[in-house]
Design a binder for these strands. Structure first.
Length: 336
DNA sequence: CCTCTTGCTAGTATGATCTC
DNA sequence: GAGATCATACTAGCAAGAGG
């Protein structure tokens, strides 16, 4: 079975409307398509009271749902809400293509939504179609309702996301990270099982976590910079205390001076012996006399003052700066 | 023992070069 | 110019090892 097939099985929770079982009660069988659709949605029956309590706009929408055209109903765009973490990745170029397509053509696949207790609908699938409709100035979009729990909708979107070959490894890492945050007890092996991929791959995705913050910044703006293999290798090198070399290598990679494999080699290369390192010397002067000479060689900074008293006073200030920086480094890395 | 990491390698995608 | 071939870069999975 291919990964795609495995993933399709995993995302079956977000089933097309035709696969939602009909209720046993056929007494009040609706005649219209949307009416039949509503009758097939037990979750909507449960929401009836909430819907009644909703605003006049929502009541009107409910009316529309009951009388709308077959194949879904037109819902005002301002009644659709996005749930974080559920949006699928789409490259900008593809989104523009989609938007222009929708500008000229009819929407073929309706947006899939779930009713919200507080009114309106949350988007299960169709974020980009909704965005495109908003951008081209439409007020409504054709929607179908789906009976899934919030977790099924979010997990389904995440695992379906993994199917997309154009999702970068860094973005997959963010997805797995979010999944782990939602389920702190879930293991990498379990996530791999759900996703239908090898646990070693999940391990490599998770290794992005250990890259230096400068590299994460680069990845935020250029997610395709690093694959999971090179990313994990660089994370290991970072763990070995060679973060600055990793940052330097990834910068070269971003400039396309080297490829991923070379970046790993460059970052892993042992730096030259200390004896051959030429220290950078800076002299801070007061008038014409040298107040302090600062020598920097690799990870060593040496300060030499004219007087012992000055050295003692300045060392207290340096200590405060270092403690502040250390505290900053101890803070957990920012999420995306 | 379970979970995670890592070395190795076959497979795949992509681009460059060659041949017609 | 189009198709064939080759080289390179990268992915993904297996298997073994490390660590708690």
């Amino acid at each position: 079975m291919s990964i795609k097939e495995k993933m399709a099985a995993k995302t079956a929770a977000i089933a097309p409307l035709s696969r939602v079982p009909r209720p046993a009660d056929a007494n009040a069988e609706p005649k219209t398509g949307p009416g039949k659709f509503l009758a097939a949605m037990p979750i909507l029956a449960e929401k009836d009271r909430e819907l009644e309590a909703m605003s006049a706009e929502n009541a009107e929408l409910r009316e529309k749902l009951a009388t709308g055209a077959r194949g879904g109903v037109d819902i005002p765009l301002d009644q659709l809400f996005e749930v974080p973490g559920r949006r699928r990745y789409m490259p900008k170029a593809k989104y523009f293509e989609l938007r222009e397509n929708l500008r000229k053509n009819k929407l073929i696949h309706p947006v899939v939504v779930r009713p919200r207790a507080e009114g309106g609908f949350e988007i299960v699938s169709g974020h980009h179609r909704t965005d495109a409709y908003r951008e081209i100035g439409r007020e409504h979009i054709r929607c179908v309702l789906e009976e899934v729990t919030e977790e099924e909708a979010t997990s389904g979107a995440f695992y379906a996301n993994l199917l997309q070959s154009d999702l970068t490894d860094y973005e997959k890492h963010l997805g797995f990270k979010r999944m782990q945050e939602r389920h702190p007890d879930i293991t990498q092996a379990e996530m791999a099982e759900h996703a239908g991929v090898d646990p070693s791959l999940v391990s490599r995705f998770m290794a992005f976590n250990e890259l230096p913050s400068e590299v994460i910044d680069l990845l935020s703006s250029q997610p395709d910079l690093l694959g999971a293999t090179a990313g994990a290798a660089l994370a290991t090198i970072t763990r070995d205390g060679r973060g600055p070399q990793v940052v330097e290598a990834v910068r070269k990679l971003a400039l396309k001076e080297i490829d991923e494999r070379q970046a790993v080699k460059v970052a892993a290369a042992k730096s030259a012996p200390a004896s051959t390192a030429t220290p950078a010397i800076n002299k801070i002067k007061v008038g014409r006399s040298v107040y302090c000479e600062m020598r920097t060689a690799k990870n060593v900074v040496r300060l030499q003052f004219q007087s012992d008293e000055e050295a003692i006073e300045v060392s207290a200030a340096i200590k405060a700066v270092l403690e502040s920086r250390a505290a900053g480094r101890a803070k957990p890395q920012q999420d995306d």
